[in-house]
Every structure is written in structure tokens, then in C-alpha cells.
Design a binder for these strands. Sequence first.
DNA 1: GTCAATTCACATGAAAGAGACCACGGTCTAGTG
DNA 2: CTAGACCGTGGTCTCTTTCATGTGAATTGACGA
Length: 401
Amino acid sequence: MAAKLDNIFNNISKNNIFQDRFVLQTNHKPGSIPHRDKEIEQIASIMAPCLRGERISNLFVYGQTGTGKTLSVDYVKNELLHRNNEGTLALKIEYLNCKLRKVSDTEYRILAELIKKLGGSVPATGLPTDQVYNKFIELIEKEKQLIVLILDEIDQAVKKISDNFLYNLTRLNSELSQSQISIVGISNDLKFLDMLDPRVRSSLGEEEIVFSPYNALQLQDILKNRAEKAFKAGVLEDGVIAKCAAYAAREHGDARRALDLLRVAGELAERGGCLKVGLKHVDLANEKIDKDKIIEVVENAPKQQQLVLLAAAKLNDAKNEDRVFTGDVYNVYQELCNKSKTEILTQRRVGDLIGELDMLGILNAPVVSNGRYGRTREIKISIPEKIYGRVKEILLDVLEN
DNA sequence: GTCAATTCACATGAAAGAGACCACGGTCTAGTG
DNA sequence: CTAGACCGTGGTCTCTTTCATGTGAATTGACGA
């Protein structure tokens, strides 16, 4: 055992692969953003008037995940603030990611978070929402200022709440006498604007910018840039970067994914005590990322959801009938609840849980119509063979206690 | 054989309840002068 | 007399239930060739 540990620690302390691992982490902000010059220029020209103290048009930025939206907007934001560093203008640009756990899901919390960012404070709960609005307005009106709110992953927020939250925000200007607000929305969902109320759409989408996905070559470029700083010279074998880029390009050109791949590949190589990062590490990394995601989700899922998944897994194993439907799962689920002395949820709710598992990609549960025999979901497990065992262990563990 | 009506087994929506959490303001209690 | 403990009220949040409505195609049955 001691020898093994020695081995591990030595490998780490030698650290023969990475130079600066942080560069590959997702929260790292690179100094330059390749292949996004045009978009950055657009954003800058739209936001520039705020340097003259004028209200800027509301802006809407679309694009798939990992296409550099957040990064670009953030970059422009910093440039603007930098140019205004003498503080001649009362200009505030606040960034808020609507998807963060603490923020998520409710109008109240988003407002609370905004207030906090603007220097006020608001209790986590317990206040009527309109009072929070008042506080928000009061805070803004305290002095004459220009405020730009950058709302990242705004689609997530609107999906959970309704869009009249956005309506309220856009309308806020009419209630303000001296200050002014602009909104920059960032969304992954291209169809997002269509879902909105027309009134909101017209006022929010005064300007729109679309970020197209990176292609494989651009991804390679980005990776090369970062890899130079992240890895020691010469540890990357030929084709590693190209392969990472290719994998990521397959997934709608997600740069984040590409960087994750590269980082995990590096870590795997390091852990394996290799001196170089090879193609096989990339393959392993690709697998590992998916696996880890699934296992993490399964582990952290609420108990009821785990039981539903276990029920589905049991039916999947039994396989005397090749098609598994919601009703079947519900029956098995009930048995499991009895066994583990858990409260039994209604079928309505279980249906939703199955839907959530489907969204997470753990189940594949499309709605099918069997004509006379009703309409239901046909449920299949979509967990890779290799970790299916692990997942079931986790689930059976849940059943025990 | 053709076509519309029927029917199944849920999906999907909307509304509302339970229980946890929290802020606020009023009241009570103990300590202080 | 005052600061802090305590309590009731009213608000939010999350998860869930209840009630209501929707749905796609296999099946059925009437109809005509």
C-alpha cells in the first residue's frame, strides 16, 4: 500500500505533463478569444453608447453552449469598464448567470442576487416579491446611473419562471426617473425568442447576435492556444489536439467540451504515469467525461427519482417483454417503495420524474402511441454498459437505507 | 375494402396544498441604573 | 428602562397531489362496391 501511495505522490510531485492546468479549466478566462472578432466588434458597437452615458439597446445573444458567448460579452464588459475607470460615468455592468443553483428558478432570487450585486442586501426568502422589486428600484434610483444587466442562460430562468419576469424588467425603465437599465440576454436556445410574449420579444430583442458553432479547425486553433500554456513543451503527441477538436466538433462545436477533453486526457496520462498524452488518452477522456456525468447525476438525484430509475433498470434486466412502459415502471416502483418504506408518489408525478430522467439522458423515454392500447412512454435505459453495474450498485444502496 | 368513430393508457396542464424556511413587528423577560 | 428572547403572521420555495383536458393510432363497426 505504502509503495502504491509513494507511486501516486511521486507522480504528482513530478508533474511531468502540466505546466499550468488552470488554463484548461472552464472558468479560466483567456486573454484573447480567437475566431470571435466579428461578434465582439458587434457587441462592442452596440454597447459603446454607454460610454457616452446613453442607454444602450437591449441585446440578445444566441448560440450553442461553448461557443464563446459568455466569454465575449464578458470581454466587452471589462473593456468598457476599463475605459470608464476614471469613473466619470456612473456606469454599472452586472453579470448574472441565471442557472446557478443559488439563483435558479425564481424571480425572487434573481432579483435578490441582482440587488446583492448592486450593493444592497436582501434576505434569502420571506419578503413579498413586489417589495423586493421596490427595493431594487430604490437601489437603482439612489443615484443617477446607467445599468446594464447581463443575464446569462436566460432561457433557463424563463423556462422555470414565466416570461413576465422579463416583461417587468424591460418595463422597469418607465418607472425610473433618472437611472436607466439595459438588458443583455444570453441564451443557448435558438428558439427561445419565439417562446416569449411578443411584447417582451420586441423590447428585449432590439439587437440580436448569433454565435455560430466553432468548426473543427477553429477548435484546433483554440486548443493550440491554450495547450501551449497548459502543457509542458512536447508532451502532446501528434493528433491529440485534432482529435479533441474532432470529438467536440461532433457535439455542435462546443469549445468547453474540447477543453475538458484535453484536460482530462492530460490528467489521465499523468495519473497513468505516462510522459506523453496520446490519442488513447483522448478516447479514455471522452468516455470518462460521459461516465462521470452520469454517475454524478445518479448519485445526487433525489431518492424518489433514484427509485424510479431502479424500477426501470429492473424491468430492463428482466426483459421478458422487450418493451417497457410507464405503467410497468410504476408498478415496480411501488414495490420498491414498499420495500424501502418510502412514500409512494402518484403516477402523475412519476411520469414527470421519468421525463426528467429522459432529459438528463439517463433514460430514453419517447412518447409512443400503441393505438388502441393507449399512449405512453416507451422506456429504455441509456447508460453505457461499462458503468451500468456501478449505477445499479448506487441505486441498490439507496434501497437499503 | 374504406372511412369515421371509438377507445385506451397514459401525457400534459393548471391549480392548489403541505411543510420547510425566513423576515418582520410586537410582546415578554431579565438585567441594568 | 432597554436589549435580547420569543412568538405569531405572512410571505416564498419545493415537491407533490388533485382535477381536467389532450392525444395518436389500432380497433371497431357501419357502409358501399
